[in-house]
């Protein structure tokens, strides 16, 4: 039992959601540490000192050569064994937005049982051709074993990306991910009754990037590694909602997004 899980929130090279990602982990009951990736590479620090790893959103290396590509390589080539060991040790990992792109480009997501770090999917330019910031509604797969989304049904969060379209070379690969319940989060139309997640392409901007099968987030086979394009940390308090001034809020101002981090922290407390 871990009383207060220690979270390594990675930073450097254009990651820019590190401060709020630390804040939400602390709101969820963990202790967050801002760790420059180079301090893991040069041995000043090690992932083994932490229970959870988070790769926040941002614009690492300016998204040049494909979002997440260069930072993914820094991890894949710079701290390969640390990362593999972390996952094999059964410790939870989350990548948000650029962090998700990093996890996909380095092959940790959708991943495989051996944690072989072979890329099998990608995230590419939105069909709209541009970056945008807009609020979407996500629906979570209740059959998924993803530790980060246990008990969650829907969530409103902003997306803020230009390269969020999840693609695989072959649709049968997606069938397989679905079968293994690795497709964790999809964009949906909030007007539809729950559950409404579907493989049928939703129109823009409900699905803001024309992602295959409306996929917003996936996990690895173990359910410990989770990545998603939308930003749950950006909805840590209700006053950050897109339409909160139109809602009757009452006394509880905790935002919908916190639940994701609470799940990760709870898992670490109970299992590590």
């Amino acid at each position: 039992m871990v009383e207060i899980p220690q979270v390594a929130v990675l930073t450097g090279f254009g990651i820019n959601c590190d401060v709020e990602t630390m804040a939400v982990f602390e709101m969820a009951g963990a202790k967050a540490h801002r760790i420059h990736i180079n301090s893991l590479v040069n041995g000043d620090d090690s992932l083994e000192n932490y229970h959870i790893m988070a790769i926040p959103g941002g614009f690492s290396f300016g998204d040049h050569l494909g979002s997440g590509r260069l930072l993914g390589n820094r991890l894949r080539f710079g701290i390969r064994e640390q990362v593999r060991q972390f996952v094999k040790d059964g410790k939870p990992v989350i990548g948000i937005c650029n962090g998700f792109q990093v996890l996909v480009k380095m092959g940790l997501l959708p991943g495989d049982d051996d944690v072989s770090l072979q890329q099998t999917a990608s995230l590419t330019l939105n069909d709209s051709g541009h970056y945008e910031d807009r609020w979407v509604t996500l629906e979570f797969n209740s059959d998924s074993h993803c530790v980060w989304t246990k008990g969650l049904s829907r969530m409103r969060t902003p997306v803020r990306h230009g390269e969020g379209k999840f693609v695989v070379p072959d649709q049968t690969v997606l069938d397989q991910y679905e079968q293994q319940q690795q497709v964790v989060a999809r964009y949906i139309d909030p007007k539809d009754e729950y559950p409404s997640a579907t493989n049928k392409p939703l129109s823009y901007p409900l699905c803001p990037n024309a992602s295959m099968r409306n996929i917003a987030g996936v996990c690895d086979p173990s359910g410990l590694v989770f990545g998603l394009m939308p930003h749950p940390e950006a909805n840590h308090s209700k006053w950050l909602g897109a339409t909160w001034t139109r809602e009757d809020i009452g006394e509880d101002w905790k935002g919908e997004g916190i639940a994701v981090f609470e799940n990760g922290v709870k898992y670490a407390k109970e299992n590590l």
């Binding site: 820019n16 959601c17 401060v19 709020e20 804040a23 939400v24 959103g57 541009h130 970056y131 945008e132 910031d133 807009r134 902003p158 803020r160 930003h231 940390e233 950006a234 909805n235 840590h236 950050l240």
Partner: peptide, 9 residues
């Protein structure tokens, strides 16, 4: 809309 107006949460 193509400016990020919400980073830093």
């Amino acid at each position: 809309r193509s400016y990020d107006h919400e980073v830093i949460a």
